[in-house]
Design a protein around this nucleic acid. Structure first.
Lengths: 214, 214, 214, 214
DNA sequence: TATGAATGAGTCTTCATTCAT
DNA sequence: GATGAATGAAGACTCATTCAT
């Protein structure tokens, strides 16, 4: 119970210490990449000693791997409840596309962390098998809804659901991942609430119209 | 005329030296980011002395800026000839979407470099005013074609052409930028020629159906 | 108790480590100046790791500042005991002039370090407020003795005690600071004990005769 | 006659080029020392190409030696005319002390250059035999005047004229060489015209009273 | 002579990691 | 588990010097 002033560390609560470190690491790795991240900065922001990172995670690279898993986990894309209360494939698909957009909007650091992992050619992914679990369900869910829509003659058939998944991911993900270059080119602040709403509406429309039967 | 074996440097041809450095820098920065890139690696791959980078570009950061500009320039997205020989807005739009996909496919390093610049919050963009020139024309071209299509009652009205531009960029760009994580999640190699073709066809369809009138 | 052979570092005694570094730095900076000093040489002579200098002092420039303060402190010009046991202003002034000469003779590195600081236009002095404390007392002491001598009609009045201080400092300081050029010009080794004694006698005489009433 | 705009170099006038380089070198070496001086800075300030320094002087060290000689030469301490028009040893000695002060006041860079040479332990002096010529006469002149004064029973006998020379040099030289540290300690700007005059008066008095017979 | 370009040997500094308490 | 101190390897950058025209 002895709590240090100004610090969030509680002696004798290692899981809390781990959480503090992971949270700080997510920020640092996402902003600076694996190579650019500073162990000292992570320790400082987590309110722990540098050595604590080594005690709990072993090395910078292992901490990065744990952070990547932590990042994917925090997305909770698999949360089916997100689209509960909707009826019909079209409405569900709309909800899903919008939900993914909102998820990305609320987890910018993860967006950059995933970009970093791609630059590392995905070499850390196989080391965290849970990552596939966290994400694969989203693909299944899209397939489910799409198939249902095709059956009900609402969606046109012949679309590969994995392609559709990539498209749904793309139209939200890239917006946030490349928000600075996109904003610069058209000289508008894409982070403005109005722009965010416009984007959300646009992608829901485009995806739905792109797959609907006519 | 005296050319060193294995090296690309020719005494007295500084513009060639600069080009060699920029080419090597594009590869290094795109693979490792600004912080992770190694000056020594760039110099080695360019076949020049480490100090030459400082003589010609001043610092690592300035070289990065020059490389970013060089990368955008090499995309040549503005090349209108790409869609010459096409007739009608629909066909032109199809050609444009496909052309952008092909451009990304052929310029992977630039894709990563742009991701890196976003992680740096776009701080280097204002330093290279030419970058906007290289890219803004692409936005205009999309608007032109779209407006023409609306006029001809081929495309549905009410779509913001900048949103459309972002979408067109997204569905191609993210595929290459996140190819490793996407491949891992669905356990398929997205770099396979068949997959590339499938993706190209998919995005052309989705975009067109998403904007066409019905 | 585990002490490394040849090295002066004792684990767990950081103040000793700092002292070792400062001592080595005084030698190196005084002989080579700020720009010419080598971090590696200081670390080597102190028997510590190069990085230890950065851990304890932050940068070369900050180490230089700490060294400057350390140098002034080691002069201990303020030590009033130096002239204890003397009676009368004349005798005290003689003792003081001689004492300052001896101090300079025994602290050559500090003499050069102060020259270096002058070439740097004194830019580091304001950063170490203690330096003024170390030196200002000497000025006061001279004024005290001088005033006493004037009161007792031993010294002639009208001399500015700060000018007198500069003169006392000059006739000793420059001898050591410029000992190489002076020796060369008159082709004599001014570091010879006989020459040192001659100089000491000369300056005591000159200063006293220069201020005595007649 | 072809003169480059903005530059002081005249094609085909090597002695002028040498002079420009030496002048710039005096400034640079005096402000930054041998190690701290930058070849590029000297070339830039002289308005010549870096390579010109090598053409004319061979190396940085040799340029430093030439600059040292140039510096001593420019003092022209040997100029007897400085004290022409004076009558009697006392007046001549006063004139001489004041003249040396004025010389130092007007040649600050040389003062620092000589300090630098002392830090280099005078290793470059033997390489420039003319330096002794430039300075030795000043010692002789002091001896002459002093001996004359002793003969005329104006000065007290028994003073070593070389010691007297060092003292005369000291009370002026140190004032300028250490002007920053001295100013800081007493918190006054010693470069102020009033202070300069006060110092000049003080040293003339002190030296004369210090050697006069009573 | 003059100059832009090129080079290799350093030099400061950073950083992940480990040690000892 | 936690901490201050210590370390070795490496990286960005500088600089005197030289080459080729």
């Amino acid at each position: 119970m002895a709590r240090k002033a100004d610090k969030g560390v509680v002696r004798g609560d290692p899981s809390r210490t781990r959480a503090l470190i992971l949270s700080a690491a997510l920020k640092e790795f996402s902003e600076n990449g694996l190579g650019g991240a500073r162990i000292e900065a992570i320790a400082g922001n987590a309110g722990v000693n540098k050595q604590a990172l080594y005690y709990h995670f072993g090395s910078k690279e292992k901490l990065y791997q744990a952070t990547l898993e932590y990042g994917y986990e925090s997305l909770r894309i698999l949360d089916k409840e997100a689209i509960s209360g909707t009826s019909g494939p079209a409405e569900r698909m709309r909800a899903l596309v919008g939900y993914f957009f909102d998820t990305m909007a609320g987890n910018r650091p993860v967006v950059w962390l995933v970009s970093e992992e791609n630059r590392l050619r995905g070499r850390n992914l196989p080391l965290s098998p849970r990552i596939r679990d966290f994400t694969a369900n989203f693909v299944s869910l899209i397939r489910e809804i799409y198939d249902e829509g095709v059956e009900q003659k609402i969606f046109r058939p012949g679309i590969d659901s994995e392609q559709l998944w990539i498209t749904i991911v793309s139209v939200s993900y890239l917006y946030f991942g490349n928000i600075y270059t996109l904003s610069y080119i058209i000289n508008k602040n894409l982070d403005d609430p109005k722009m965010l709403k416009a984007r959300r509406d646009h992608i829901v429309d485009i995806v739905l119209l792109g797959i609907e039967r006519r």
